[in-house]
């Protein structure tokens, strides 16, 4: 039972990640690899504030969102001039920068959270407290699952409302033809900054949720592998609508878990699972190029 609840929490976390990433990739047409970096920054910010300063979940997450929104300029500003492959490379550079900063921002002789040892480098941060919401702490697996579901639902509601608003329609117009949108007097640069900032601040919530669930955080949450995993979720599930990323998050969490039930030889199980997983992804992209439930194909 705990195993299923654990998976449900993971599903909630990745639904937030995938839905927020969909705002950048599916609605703005900007393929970013840096999203996992902001996910990690959100988690680290929450961890430091909760661990070192004893902050509650809500204020710590609010600061994490603000930090990610400001740092999201590293992705949004290059999008003014970079397009297509060059933009992807730019976001890859941002991802590498974030990962390097988290990995190297440590000093063994100084306490965690000091300016010299902000992240504890490759050793990560342990003992991250459970979230505390106005004095209530979801300590049991069931209560944490409910809490994570409420948080994911709230983030999903915010994104749903934004995507269905005239602002969301404007994002689609920019995605379809940015030059035509500019010709109608729309400040597409500013709107892209807004979209990336909103998506980055919302993924910070997922990072905080992850940190408070696992209670340990290391640089791997900002790795390129993680970035590709979350990108796979939105591409496999489908871009440009609300249900696609949710489907993608479900499939990419459920698929590796289902493969565990295959009777594979222990020595080769991990590699074979990866092989099958990759093959299924390739087949899915071949037969469903728009994703399972998508409305837009990334160029």
């Amino acid at each position: 039972m705990n195993y299923l609840l654990h998976l449900l929490v993971y599903f909630d976390i990745y639904v937030i990640v995938a839905l927020s990433l969909n705002l950048i990739v599916g609605y703005c047409g900007m393929l970013t690899l840096a999203h996992a970096g902001y996910y990690a920054i959100g988690g680290y910010t929450y961890a430091l504030l909760a661990l070192n300063l004893g902050w509650g979940f809500v204020p710590a997450v609010a600061v994490a969102m603000l930090v990610c929104a400001v740092l999201s300029l590293a992705v949004a500003l290059p999008s003014w001039r970079l397009r297509g492959d060059f933009f992807v490379l730019g976001t890859l550079a941002v991802q590498a920068l974030i990962f390097s900063a988290i990995y190297n921002w440590s000093s063994p002789d100084t306490p965690l959270g000091s300016w010299k040892n902000l992240t504890n480098g490759p050793f990560g941060i342990t003992g991250i407290p459970r979230p505390s919401i106005f004095g209530w702490t979801p300590a049991s697996p069931l209560s944490f699952t409910l809490f994570a579901t409420v948080v994911a639902g709230s983030c999903g509601f915010v994104l749903w409302r934004l995507q269905r608003s005239p602002w969301g329609r404007l994002l689609l117009a920019i995605r379809d033809d940015e030059l035509a949108a500019r010709g109608l007097g729309k400040n597409t640069r500013f709107i892209k900054i807004q979209a990336v900032a909103i998506a980055s601040s919302i993924v910070a919530v997922a990072g905080a949720l992850y940190a408070s669930h696992v209670r340990y955080l290391d640089p791997s949450s900002a790795s390129l592998d993680e970035g590709i995993l979350v990108l796979s979720m939105v591409i496999v599930g489908g871009l440009g609508n609300f249900k696609g990323p949710i489907v993608g998050a479900f499939v990419l969490i459920a698929l590796p878990e289902l493969l565990r039930f295959l009777s594979l030889p222990d020595t080769q199980a991990a590699n074979l699972r990866l092989l099958i997983y990759g093959l299924l992804l390739v087949l899915m992209m071949h037969f469903r190029p728009n994703g399972i439930a998508g409305a837009y194909r990334v160029q």
Binding site: S165, P166, W167, R169, L170, L172, A173, R175, D176, D177, A180, A181, L184, G185, I191, G240, A295, Y296
Partner: peptide, 20 residues
């Protein structure tokens, strides 16, 4: 804007939309 309806193609052009 190919993915949008004709109504949205025209409505999106209107300047000063607070919903944006």
């Amino acid at each position: 804007f190919g993915s949008q309806s004709l109504r949205d193609n025209i409505a999106v052009a209107k300047p000063g939309h607070s919903g944006e």
